[in-house]
Write a protein that binds this DNA or RNA. Structure first.
Lengths: 207, 207
DNA sequence: AAATCAACGGAGCGAATCGCTCCGTTCAAT
DNA sequence: ATTGAACGGAGCGATTCGCTCCGTTGATTT
């Protein structure tokens, strides 16, 4: 074991708890029990409630963290020289981390001001990433940043029935297919209207 | 109202019940309550239990029906002149119907002999559809029939947080992207190994 | 070595929700 | 007017939930 003393153990447990919570919510949805989370993290329920007063508080903290991770991934993507590699890397990172897996929490928890701010910053970065790819002509013209957000939301969900390793392998293959479909030029135009920002975030406003 | 008498109402209710059950399970997973299903169908709980002795029996019946619908979609696809149109139509039909949305039931209900038979027939038809697309050179060479099954499983899940109409519109746009990514020639090879039949159906064997 | 105490795991509480039963009501057919 | 099949939903016991509380552990201090 690394780290010495109870404080180090507490820090480790906090990490384990957050990772486990994200995976369990991603697989089972917002209704997952705190016992399932604590069990997967390998810690007691008491240790969970010493850090987060309620299940809801844990969920809010999880949302902020996930959006911050997404912003960092977007910054890495913008730092890449190649516009396509940057965008694909951003999408891959977010899907691997499970950024969009917390979408089922929308409407179930109040959205703090900090959450809106973090979301706004992440959206701006993602918009720049997408705009750059459009200008470089590597991203199909009829796809929007919100389409990509929905795509990541879809791919973020974990299978509730398969082993995590298998699930991850499957997801990477399917994501590679979707990424190929995102490249310009498009073979078949996208049907319907692109999603609007308002309808995208509406579920979060219904608290 | 169409139909006269109590028998007609019963037949209508049975349809409403099955449609509602598929949608609710697709959105909320296997843990969805029977009250939620009856409520969405607009019928009483008593009417549900007059037709299905247990929740489990309803789920099994739902699985058989979904797989039969998938087989019919595959037959329509094989009847199409164009190999790509046939495959794309099959995938689109299955996703629209929600064939793969019952995957979360795997491991939660015993698999009847009839379910295995129906599944086997559906798989044979899908294999032929995929093989024909491969031979015609319209489907990227590194994708297998099981990859496509997993893709349909992914796209079959309904959003638990958005209105069904919006969710459907989003899903069709994202599916169009994925279908573009399935076309030959591939721009980027798929990572990892293709899934095996054994690992694909393993969750169903763990009853 | 003894004392201290922060962090630990989990048994168990009341509340909520579950699958399912049971029964009074409705209404087309007799 | 009578029948009876199909109806909706209140409510049962069982289960599961979020959460509290407490005895235990072990690094640190005296």
């Amino acid at each position: 074991m690394s780290g010495r003393g109870r404080q180090a153990e507490a820090a480790r447990n906090d990490r384990l708890l957050l990772d486990a919570a994200r995976e369990v919510f991603a697989a089972q949805g917002a209704g997952a029990s705190v016992a399932a989370i604590a069990g997967r993290a390998g810690v007691g329920i008491g240790s969970l409630y010493r850090r987060y007063a309620t299940k809801q508080e844990l969920q809010q903290h999880l949302c902020v963290l996930a959006m911050e991770q997404a912003s960092e991934a977007a910054e890495r993507g913008l730092a890449a020289d190649d516009a396509w590699a940057g965008l694909a890397g951003y999408i891959g990172d977010c899907v691997a981390f499970g950024t969009g897996a917390l979408a089922p929490l929308a409407g179930q928890i109040p959205v703090s001001e900090r959450m809106w701010q973090t979301a706004r910053r992440g959206r701006q970065l993602a918009d720049r990433l997408v705009a750059r790819a459009h200008q470089a002509g590597v991203l199909r013209a009829d796809v929007t940043a919100l389409d990509i957000s929905l795509l990541m939301e879809l791919f973020s969900r974990r299978s509730p029935i398969r082993a995590p390793g298998q699930d991850q392998a499957h997801r990477q293959r399917l994501l590679a297919i979707a990424l190929d479909g995102l490249r310009a030029p498009a073979r078949q135009p996208l049907p319907g209207q692109p999603p609007s920002q308002q309808e995208y975030e509406a579920p979060w406003r219904a608290g």
